[in-house]
Each structure stands twice: as structure tokens, then as C-alpha cells.
């Protein structure tokens, strides 16, 4: 096994998450799951990282930040997208500011489904990512990740046609 696989350093980037995924991700570091067993170190900065763990959907303001963070990682590097938000925008898909999933902006190697995914699933995702990392180091083409997605387009929001009632006088609202 390549040494790359023995010491995956992870940087965690919270795009537009509801913090559900983040809490679950941090749980991975806790004694119950203890990802440090696999040599995983949670580093605070992309320059030291091998794996970028993204949570949450992308919006107008953080799209370039995500791109910058990704760009500042030394290759070989792998992106793990955790949670349904990262694949499609999740429950925030229809927000006025949300642009969509992470894969629109940076190449994603592993999607971890769930809202939020369980820590076990995340660890599984990281272990998969480690494999891809080793393959990338050897220059092997790695397949683009499948999106675990059933596109559910929500029905159009019902628009209230009735004009808002103007109050007649101060305090006269019924």
C-alpha cells in the first residue's frame, strides 16, 4: 500500500451546510469512531491536506472560496462530498442563493449520501478516498464519482396571488 494511503490528512470545508453534516464529521474524530486509527489528521488548512471533505451546498459567495481552497491543495488530492446538500443542494436546492452541488465547481471523487450521513458512512467515504488517492499517486485514471441522486424537483412554490392587505388606519388590522 502506498504511504499516501497510510496518512490521509483531511481538511474540512463547510460550504453552506446546516451544520448537521459537520457535527457528524467531527464525531468521526471522537473516541467512538477515532479516525486517527487510520492516520487521519484533521488539519486546518488546505496546503497540508490530501483529502478535502466538503459539506453543504454551494452558494454565490462561497463558490470561489471552495475553488480557492481546492486549488491550494497539493496534488494528489481527493474530494469527499458529504451529505445530500453537496450533490444537489439538498433541502436548500431552491434557495435564492444556492447554486447547486459541489461537483459543479470542483471535481468530486466520493459522494457520501445521507442527510446527514452517519459517521460510519463518512469513514467509509474517507477509506474509499484513500484508495483513490493511492491510485492517483500512481497516475491511474480514477472514475468520476456516481451521484447517489434521485432528482426530486420540488413542485413550484405556490405563489400567493392576493395582494397584501393594506392596513386602513394605524392599528386597524383585523
Amino acid at each position: 500500500m502506498s504511504v499516501l494511503a497510510k496518512s490521509p490528512w483531511v481538511v474540512h470545508f463547510n460550504c453552506n451546510s446546516c451544520n448537521g453534516c459537520d457535527i457528524e464529521f467531527l464525531a468521526c474524530l471522537c473516541p467512538t469512531y477515532d479516525v486517527e486509527r487510520f492516520g487521519v489528521v484533521h488539519v486546518g488548512n488546505p496546503k497540508h491536506a490530501d483529502i478535502l471533505v466538503v459539506t453543504g451546498s454551494v452558494n454565490h459567495r462561497n463558490a470561489r472560496v471552495l475553488a480557492n481552497v481546492y486549488q491550494q491543495m497539493p496534488s494528489p488530492k481527493v474530494v469527499v462530498a458529504c451529505g445530500v446538500c453537496t450533490s444537489s443542494g439538498g433541502i436548500f436546492a431552491d434557495c435564492y442563493n444556492v447554486l447547486g452541488g459541489v461537483d459543479k465547481f470542483i471535481p468530486v471523487d466520493v459522494f457520501v449520501p445521507g442527510c446527514p450521513p452517519r459517521p460510519e458512512a463518512m469513514i467509509d467515504g474517507i477509506v474509499k478516498a484513500v484508495g483513490i488517492l493511492a491510485a492517483k499517486a500512481k497516475g491511474i485514471e480514477t472514475p468520476v464519482a456516481d451521484k447517489p441522486r434521485i432528482t426530486v424537483s420540488p413542485s413550484p412554490k405556490p405563489v400567493d396571488e392576493t395582494p397584501a392587505q393594506e392596513p386602513d388606519e394605524v392599528g386597524a388590522v383585523k
Binding site: 504511504v3 499516501l4 497510510k6 496518512s7 490528512w9 489528521v41 490530501d50 497539493p74 499517486a137
Partner: peptide
């Protein structure tokens, strides 16, 4: 392992 990994990055 960490150092060896860093060396090939």
C-alpha cells in the same frame, strides 16, 4: 508515514 507521504506530495 506522514513524512514519507509529504515527501511525495
Amino acid at each position: 508515514y506522514d513524512v514519507l507521504k509529504l515527501l511525495i506530495k
